[in-house]
Nucleic acid binder design. Structure first.
Lengths: 208, 208
DNA sequence: ACAAAATACAAGTGATCGCTCATAATTGTA
DNA sequence: TACAATTATGAGCGATCACTTGTATTTTGT
């Protein structure tokens, strides 16, 4: 039942030249995914866009899935770099401040590479070892769960687990939809009202 | 740029026998989508599962996309049958009652055929003329927008458009995630707490 | 300078896909 | 019963896909 697919690199690129090849392949994969969608992203096409032979592609990636997985890893790492500091700083803040910060961080994360993010979230087959995105959300879930426990006395909800689920799902869905489908909501001064509204909703939920 | 794909039936089935064939094809498509996922759902496989020749499939559906579109139509119609009455009844209710009802309706809708719903929402390519699901959400959006306008005096938010976007996105995301990924949250007496929490969040957002 | 290791190349393989078409079987009509 | 319309069949076509393999080129180490 479980189809095992290797997603680790076939060989590590040690020389400067090969590192450039790997980079070109990752860049091309992201470009093709964004411009043509997952279905059109054939390995032959990716190699062509990268200016690299199909043979070279398979020198460094054992299969198509590993190539996409590498792009996902790179993207989640970029998001992490943008959001990590803010999350750490947030941990000690009271609910009102933390809620606003959390929403802002979620927006920033979705703004790292919105088009790529959209493709990864909506078009990548959920099977296989491509659940790196899922893992990322799970990480945010753990963080929120920890925050709620630490601030137990400021919170009125009965079930912290349920609250964490609701908070993560709500903020992720709202920022995702706003950045990708309603960018007008986040343009100019409107952005502040969006953050205000969502943060207020979250806070008033936690305080019964 | 715009690739036009016909999604209407190639010919309408007039006899009893052919209607059964069409039905078997739709049923098989849903089954294959659920069991094997979109990528494995080849027309050859669907015809085989339906116990119908590949030629017959193309008598009634001009292409694969139209077949999937028909399954989506059928599914959205089933959801509509479940939810329509409740939505109409909800229109005259005050916020507290309406909010609870809205969340309940969303859950019922997602429970019509959860596995199929998950595949349709997560695996179907967003390109082409398969935005029927999108249209369904848009319909819910229009309904909420109308409700908010009708109950303008009970509401404290400044931007009704933003509020409608937030409400629809939040309730859709929460019920979707709960039904498909956290069914434990909706089992037994826990379900009531979930509805309570979400409804309370929604109401406290609308009343500043 | 030169051999070995690393890297790059691209034609080609087998499998699968969506879909067609010539033909056969069934059903409605007279 | 006879004929036309409808429906069903499935071998197979051309295209595309992920991926292999044998060979050529470049870089490294000495």
């Amino acid at each position: 039942m479980a189809r095992k697919v290797e997603t680790t690199p076939r060989k590590s690129a040690s020389q400067e030249r090969s590192r450039a090849t790997v980079d070109a392949l990752l860049e091309a994969t992201a470009r093709v995914l964004i411009n043509d969608g997952y279905d059109q992203a054939s390995t032959n096409r990716i190699a062509e866009v990268a200016g690299v032979s199909i043979g070279s592609l398979y020198q460094y990636f054992p299969n198509k899935e590993s190539l996409v997985a590498a792009v996902i890893d790179r993207h989640t790492q970029e998001i992490s770099e943008v959001t990590r500091k803010a999350l750490v700083k947030m941990a000690a803040s009271p609910i009102e401040t933390a809620a606003r910060a959390f929403v802002s961080v979620a927006i920033d994360g979705h703004r790292v590479n919105p088009k790529l993010h959209g493709v990864l979230a909506e078009q990548i087959p959920r099977v296989g070892r491509l659940e790196n995105i899922e893992a990322n959300i799970q990480q945010g879930y753990a963080f929120v769960r920890g925050y709620l426990e630490a601030h137990r006395d400021e919170i009125d909800v009965a079930d912290l687990d349920l609250a964490a689920f609701i908070l993560v799902t709500v903020v992720e869905a709202l920022t995702h939809a706003a950045v990708l489908r309603r960018p007008d909501i986040l343009s100019g001064e409107k952005a502040e009202q969006f953050v205000d509204d969502v943060a207020r909703m979250v806070v008033s939920y936690l305080r019964a």
